[in-house]
Amino acid sequence: MADAPQPINLGGLGDIDMYPIETQAAARLVHQAGKAFATVWDATVQHILDAEKMLGQGADELGKTFRASYNPFSSTVIPAARQIDPTYDGLAGAGSKAVVRYLEVDGQIIPDLFRKLE
């Protein structure tokens, strides 16, 4: 394996613009978090939907009051939850590409060290 890239200090001002290894690792963690959420969500969402059908609209005043405030919220949760994995995947991909771009600009690109997120 090639030597690991050094911290990037564009402009030579003494500040560090990026730690490539750590930034790439963080992008992978973001990617993994989205996948982990999607796995749990996919296994759970049908249970939630089945329970909602079973509970109906509420038989008493407490149930009806709960439903009146729950229903509008519940209609936004499922579409929002379905966007977590693609959103995190996009963020992770952008982070990974930023590392590669920074390394290119800094002149220390090491292609075999940074691979596309899978």
Rank of each mutant, 00 (worst) to 15 (best):
D3C: 02
A4L: 12
P5I: 02
P5A: 08
P5M: 04
P5N: 05
P7E: 07
N9V: 03
N9L: 04
L10F: 13
G12M: 04
L13V: 06
D15Y: 10
D15G: 12
D15V: 11
I16C: 11
Y19W: 08
P20Q: 14
P20L: 15
E22V: 07
T23W: 07
Q24H: 14
A25N: 11
A27R: 03
H31K: 00
F37I: 06
T39M: 11
W41H: 12
A43Y: 07
T44Q: 10
V45C: 12
V45N: 10
H47G: 11
L49A: 13
D50F: 03
A51N: 04
E52Q: 08
K53Q: 04
L55R: 10
E61S: 07
F66C: 05
F66Q: 05
N71K: 13
S75R: 15
S75L: 14
V77C: 09
V77Y: 14
I78N: 13
A80S: 13
A81P: 08
A81R: 14
D85R: 08
D85K: 09
D85A: 06
D89H: 09
D89Q: 08
G90E: 04
G90Y: 04
A92V: 02
A94Y: 01
G95R: 01
K97N: 09
V99D: 04
V99F: 05
V100S: 11
V100T: 10
L103A: 09
L103F: 08
G107I: 08
G107F: 06
I109C: 12
I110T: 15
D112R: 13
D112Y: 12
L113P: 01
L113V: 07
F114G: 09
R115Y: 05
K116W: 02
